[in-house]
């Protein structure tokens, strides 16, 4: 959703602090303490803004992401002043959301596989990984399928595969996820709510 930036972070006034500083008669060689900020505040003015909800504690605070559409990276995340719950405020975790993005080099970016007995990861493709997982799901399901229980009642279930997760997913991901697991016959379906 591209909404006019005016609605969220209304950044107006003179172009950068530089002008204000120079009006004080200061030699405007790159003022390092502000160089970053000058760049930042100017970048903010042309950034695309989008809203999001904090992924942490369930109070449901609103945040605004500012994205540099050329570099395709998020350059700033701060509170959404229009959100009725937090009105722009954020705790340490929400204020730090920037470090969950691709700006954090520790983000997982590759599909990894660990073979039995191995002490390291191998990089794989999505096609390979999902294909192999599908094969294993089928093999384990078919090899351990329970058609009837001890009482002779039809149960058509699989107890040899379990699933947990996730309170971190969107509602629209969760619904198909449980449908898929149930269609596969799983009954061990759990997640964070249980602990």
């Amino acid at each position: 959703m591209t909404v006019s930036r005016r609605e969220f972070l209304v950044i107006s006034g003179v172009a950068g602090a530089g002008l204000a500083l120079s009006s004080l008669g200061i030699d405007m060689g790159p003022v390092k303490a502000y160089a970053q900020e000058l760049k930042k505040i100017d970048k903010m003015k042309s950034a695309k803004q989008s809203t999001t909800i904090c992924p942490y504690c369930a109070v449901g605070c609103g945040l605004i992401c500012s994205t540099d559409t050329k570099a395709k990276t998020i350059i700033n995340i701060e509170g959404d002043p229009d959100h009725p719950i937090n009105e722009g405020a954020l705790c340490a975790k929400g204020a730090s959301l920037f470090q969950t993005t691709s700006n954090n080099s520790d983000r997982l970016k590759k599909v990894l596989y660990r073979a039995p007995g191995s002490d390291k990861w191998q990089e794989k493709s999505w096609e390979w990984a999902l294909g192999e997982i599908a094969k294993r799901v089928k093999a384990t399901r078919d090899g351990n399928f329970i058609e009837k229980n001890a009482k002779g009642e039809t149960v058509n279930r699989v107890e040899a595969i379990a699933h947990i997760g996730s309170a971190a997913l969107d509602n629209e991901e969760l619904w198909p996820l449980q449908a898929m697991m149930r269609a596969l016959g799983l009954v061990y379906i759990e997640h964070q709510a249980r602990i």
Binding site: S12, A17, Y34, I41, E78, A89
Partner: peptide
């Protein structure tokens, strides 16, 4: 390393652009 001195700027760039300091905004 650089010998420059640092401290709070009162978010000068923000307050001269119609925004409040980042810390103040964050406070619930």
């Amino acid at each position: 390393k650089t010998k420059e001195l640092f401290k709070c700027t009162m978010c000068f760039d923000r307050i001269t652009n119609n925004m409040i300091p980042a810390c103040v905004k964050s406070c619930p």
